[in-house]
Simulated scan of single mutants.
Amino acid sequence: MNDRALIKFAAEVVAQPRVSDALFAEVRGFLSDREVVRRFRFAAVTGLSAALPPCSTCP
Rank of each mutant, 00 (worst) to 15 (best):
residue 1 M to A: 13
residue 2 N to G: 13
residue 5 A to E: 07
residue 6 L to G: 05
residue 6 L to S: 04
residue 8 K to W: 06
residue 8 K to N: 07
residue 9 F to I: 03
residue 9 F to W: 02
residue 10 A to F: 01
residue 10 A to M: 08
residue 11 A to I: 09
residue 11 A to P: 02
residue 12 E to W: 06
residue 14 V to Y: 04
residue 14 V to P: 02
residue 15 A to Y: 06
residue 17 P to E: 14
residue 17 P to T: 08
residue 18 R to W: 11
residue 19 V to H: 01
residue 20 S to M: 07
residue 21 D to K: 12
residue 22 A to R: 12
residue 22 A to S: 14
residue 22 A to P: 03
residue 23 L to R: 00
residue 23 L to T: 01
residue 26 E to D: 10
residue 27 V to T: 00
residue 28 R to P: 02
residue 28 R to V: 03
residue 29 G to E: 00
residue 32 S to A: 06
residue 33 D to K: 10
residue 34 R to G: 11
residue 35 E to D: 09
residue 36 V to H: 03
residue 36 V to R: 03
residue 36 V to Y: 06
residue 36 V to F: 04
residue 37 V to H: 11
residue 37 V to M: 05
residue 39 R to S: 10
residue 39 R to E: 15
residue 41 R to C: 05
residue 41 R to G: 07
residue 41 R to Y: 08
residue 42 F to Q: 15
residue 42 F to I: 10
residue 43 A to Y: 10
residue 43 A to E: 05
residue 43 A to T: 01
residue 44 A to K: 15
residue 44 A to V: 09
residue 44 A to D: 15
residue 44 A to R: 14
residue 44 A to Q: 13
residue 46 T to H: 14
residue 46 T to M: 11
residue 46 T to L: 09
residue 46 T to I: 04
residue 47 G to W: 00
residue 47 G to E: 03
residue 48 L to N: 13
residue 49 S to E: 13
residue 49 S to G: 04
residue 49 S to A: 09
residue 50 A to D: 15
residue 51 A to M: 09
residue 53 P to W: 03
residue 54 P to V: 07
residue 55 C to D: 15
residue 55 C to T: 11
residue 57 T to S: 15
residue 59 P to R: 12
